[in-house]
Amino acid sequence: MRGAFILLLTAGLLAGCGVRDKIQGANNRVAFDGVYFKSQLSADKDDPLSFTVTVAPVGLGLDPAREAGRYEATKYCVRNFGNSEVDWAAGPDADADKLTIIEDTLHLSGRCSG
């Protein structure tokens, strides 16, 4: 009985201090070449397998920005569809002159392989 109380109390305290969010990744930030980018993924409402990713600021490094975009896409596909395969329409491996960069923001788009 006493052990159960201590376990319940500990669980309550950990839940209150945000440990659950840290374990699930809500507060985890990933640096690419030492740089933290603001990345945002938007899924298509009609086709959840399709998405766009924006990464900023590209001025801090194009190659790490590409990897930040790839990371967001992979994370989305794994969490939602259990697969890390992405079919890129406008992907991070494209030549630099073929990438869409608007106002220091990289725009990528693709589709999770389902």
Rank of each mutant, 00 (worst) to 15 (best):
R111L: 09
G91H: 05
V55L: 01
E103P: 02
G59C: 06
D44T: 05
L13N: 12
P64F: 06
G18T: 14
D21R: 12
R2S: 15
G114L: 09
G69T: 15
L9F: 12
P48M: 15
D44H: 10
A68S: 03
Y71T: 07
R70T: 02
Q40P: 03
P48T: 15
G61Q: 12
A96W: 00
L60I: 02
G91C: 05
G25K: 03
A68V: 00
A94F: 02
G34V: 04
A11G: 15
R29M: 08
L41T: 04
K38C: 08
I102F: 01
A11F: 09
A31H: 07
V58R: 00
L7E: 15
M1P: 07
V78C: 09
L62P: 04
L99Y: 00
Y71C: 06
I101E: 01
I101W: 00
D44Q: 09
D33E: 15
R20N: 14
V58I: 08
T74L: 06
G25E: 13
R2L: 13
I23H: 13
G16D: 09
S84V: 13
V58C: 02
A11W: 10
P64C: 11
H107F: 08
D47H: 09
V78R: 10
F37I: 02
N27V: 11
T105S: 08
N80R: 12
G34I: 03
F5N: 07
R2E: 06
T74V: 14
A68E: 00
V86Y: 01
V86E: 04
R20W: 10
G12Y: 13
Y36Q: 07
Q40W: 04
D21C: 05
R2C: 07
K38V: 11
L60V: 03
A90Q: 08
V35C: 03
V78K: 15
C77P: 08
D44E: 08
Y36P: 13
C17H: 15
R66Y: 02
G82Y: 07
A65D: 13
I101H: 03
A26W: 08
P64N: 13
A90W: 02
A90S: 04
L8Q: 14
C112D: 15
G12S: 07
L13T: 14
A94M: 07
A89H: 14
N28G: 06
C77K: 03
L49D: 12
Y76F: 15
M1R: 13
L108Y: 01
